[in-house]
Design a protein around this nucleic acid. Structure first.
Lengths: 229, 229
DNA sequence: ATAATAATTGTTATATATACACTTATTAAA
DNA sequence: TTTAATAAGTGTATATATAACAATTATTAT
């Protein structure tokens, strides 16, 4: 058979799609674009693109994310390969979905306009093309799982954040309210936050102290058993 | 742009590879084959194959698994997409890896000979082609995670199994020994096993009672919080 | 000075996880 | 038939983690 086995193959295209999560302080959001080409032109869609022959799917996802956000060094993780034969109306395309976490405050309005992009709260996602709805659903599940054991929630917040903000984030991700006292105790007991001598004063009279995530402290711990919630 | 966007794409082949796990009563094992074609002909490898234009990657993985084992209705789960540009020496191929759990006792020696296949204990995996070593490592990790919350370990055992056998399985997967009393109590407390009035007498004088997994009982529970270990 | 608002803090009860060793059933050998 | 050997089966006490619950404090606007 030799490498004829390779030559006789063809006909499947490979794409990537990105679920981009943000957090506005209250709700978990996803960044969607109006698709700019046929088929399904003008419909809401995840940002995506084909994988070039000279790049890995990771590279492709980073490129695609950068096209939409202008950002680099974003937290991103491969989610799943979607490959139903008829998932893309225009041809045989499999898509490797990725999800990314960005600080919504860093995202520029200009880019948003250039790409006809918009943030949607997770409970108000519009109809999406192809199987993108399924991708979003799976991304949310994965985020819920992952955030329970890994310190990735901070990627969705500004560098300085308050404990109430952090709690709001977890409540948004898990879609349930949490007890303030238990939450605070548990998070601080992890020993991975540094308290700043500075308060956020916008959302209350008393003000809430800022904290920052200390990656060094985290790395020194045994990563296996870290339970965030 | 239209669907020229599609037509201009090409050059990436799509394959699947299967990590097939078995359990011999003592050790977790993986089924490997001697690769029958170039490149890397004659080296140890995972079972794999190209994805046809008319099938999903799931379908391709099921087909590939069936080729090697003759079995159907096997537990299988998509693992990860491996896509480094130079991962396959003969061309630009991305591979969607799957892992499967089979009852080693159901696997026929005949098929094993036909395909030059062999079971290897997980701590004695030989050098594998391409990035298959990485795939095996990732599959093991995923199995460890998954088995902690989902009743998939039973896929690796005969329909009837004893508690010591089940404990051996978990010890093999986690690579650590467990306390007999705590293990038994915890597993039985889940309420998903039925005790048979029959003993396995090969491995001890006293004999150990057989149990079977009761899928109905499991389905009636709240699946979220089920902690096996 | 007072009212209003959200941040901050502690205790108790319950559930879960861990550590630990003797008794029992059975068969092969004496 | 007794005895020895082997692995199965079983209970309790302690430590840790989780869950439930409300009063006090800091600050600013009135």
């Amino acid at each position: 058979m030799d490498i004829d086995k390779y030559k006789s193959q063809e006909g499947v295209l490979v794409a990537v799609d990105c679920i981009i999560f943000g957090f506005d302080g209250q709700q978990l959001q996803a960044l969607l674009i109006k698709r700019g080409f046929e088929p399904e032109k003008g419909k809401w869609s995840l940002m995506g693109g084909f994988v070039n022959p000279d790049e890995s799917t990771d590279d492709a996802a980073i490129r695609v994310l950068n096209q939409l956000t202008g950002m680099n060094n974003i937290y991103m993780e491969q989610l799943y390969c979607f490959s139903n034969v008829n998932r893309d109306a225009a041809g045989r395309v499999i898509s490797i979905a990725y999800f990314a976490l960005i600080n919504i405050g860093d995202y520029s309005d200009q880019l948003q306009q250039d790409h006809e992009a918009r943030w949607f709260p997770m409970d108000q996602i519009p109809n999406l093309i192809f199987d993108h709805q399924e991708m979003v659903a799976k991304a949310k599940e994965r985020l819920q799982q992952k955030v329970a054991n890994h310190p990735i929630g901070f990627e969705l917040l500004p560098e300085k954040f308050t404990l109430p903000q952090l709690q709001n984030l977890y409540e948004a991700i898990y879609e349930q309210s949490l007890d303030k006292r238990n939450f605070t105790r548990k998070i601080l007991a992890l020993g991975i936050l540094n308290k700043l001598n500075e308060k956020e004063k916008e959302s209350s009279r008393k003000g809430a102290f800022y904290f920052v995530f200390d990656k060094n402290k985290y790395n020194k711990l045994q990563h296996e058993g870290l339970k965030f919630l």
